[in-house]
Design a protein around this nucleic acid. Structure first.
Length: 271
DNA sequence: CTTTGCACCTGTTGGC
DNA sequence: TGCCAACAGGTGCAAA
């Protein structure tokens, strides 16, 4: 499930509960995620204190004095905080247990996610080393998109989802951003004008910001019985709405496949 | 180098 | 209603 807004919301929900706390141990109930979990993680983390939590692309980074825990939620992962040791449920693969009793619990039915340890800075990890700019940072702009798209024949939607171009734009928000910018998803990336790239960059930021805001307000808490792990509904303009009327013009939303991903668009509004 | 398609895994959905 | 194939929000990597 998690796209960037969910990851950001997870970060904000979890971070205050673990910042400054010291790990007393780690419980691993499986080691088979996308990559094997470090089997000695408990020994690595015991006695270490969380210095800072941040996000890079869709990676959650929990920083310690001598290294960083890199967590990716994959397609179905989530994190929750428990203040007393609750019984683990199916697919609760790992617990980071803190000295004050706080538990950070990783849950992931499909196990496409990952938990990695790196001694050193996160950006030195090969998975993070070559990532493009953050969409919500100052470095992101239509100008940047225009430059990245130059000479690219592939569909603009595919290019937008390539994390070497810009990170964190997953399938839902690629669809939604292209609708908001009124750009057809199958257009060759290089065919976009500078003005269209400006509109697209603007749309990406707008859509992501609104989703994060919605997450922040919809979401209650990440603690204990706080309900589901932090997914929130949102009113999509096109995603998942094939056959339903476009909210702008009434034309039925079309569905196709681009790069093996479901692609939704309004054939009338997007060109 | 660019682009395409597969693979990983389980739970849910839609069509018959 | 029941069953099963198709599909799901990610993304690294092999192959073309």
């Amino acid at each position: 499930m998690p796209e960037l807004p969910e990851v950001e919301t997870t970060l904000r929900g979890v971070s205050p509960h673990i910042n400054g706390k010291t790990v007393s141990g780690v419980i691993l109930r499986t080691t088979k995620l996308r990559w094997p979990l470090p089997p000695d993680l408990s020994e690595t983390l015991r006695g270490q204190t969380v210095q800072n939590c941040r996000r890079r692309a869709k990676y959650l980074l929990i920083e310690f004095a001598h290294g960083v825990l890199i967590i990716h939620l994959g397609m179905s992962g989530s994190l929750r905080i428990f203040t007393d040791s609750a019984e683990s449920q199916k697919h609760d693969h790992a617990d980071i247990v803190f000295a004050d009793g706080t538990v950070l619990r990783y849950h992931d039915p499909r196990r496409f996610g990952a938990i990695l340890w790196l001694s050193g800075v996160a950006e030195h990890h090969p998975l993070l080393a070559d990532l493009g700019p953050e969409p919500l940072d100052g470095g992101f702009s239509g100008c940047l998109l225009h430059r990245a798209f130059a000479k690219q024949n592939r569909a603009v939607k595919t290019a937008l989802m390539d994390n070497a171009v810009v990170v964190g734009v997953g399938n839902i928000y690629a669809n939604e951003s292209l609708f908001q910018a009124a750009i057809a998803p199958h257009r060759p990336a290089k065919s976009l004008s500078k003005a269209e790239c400006d509109a697209l960059a603007q749309a990406v930021q707008d859509v992501l910001r609104r989703a994060i805001d919605a997450g922040g307000s919809t979401l209650r808490d990440f603690v204990d019985s706080s309900g589901k792990s932090g997914y929130f509904q949102q009113q999509y303009q096109v995603y998942g709405r094939s056959g339903e009327p476009c909210r702008q013009c009434g034309t039925p939303i079309a569905k196709t496949v681009i790069g093996q991903r479901g692609t939704f668009y309004c054939p009338n509004c997007q060109h």
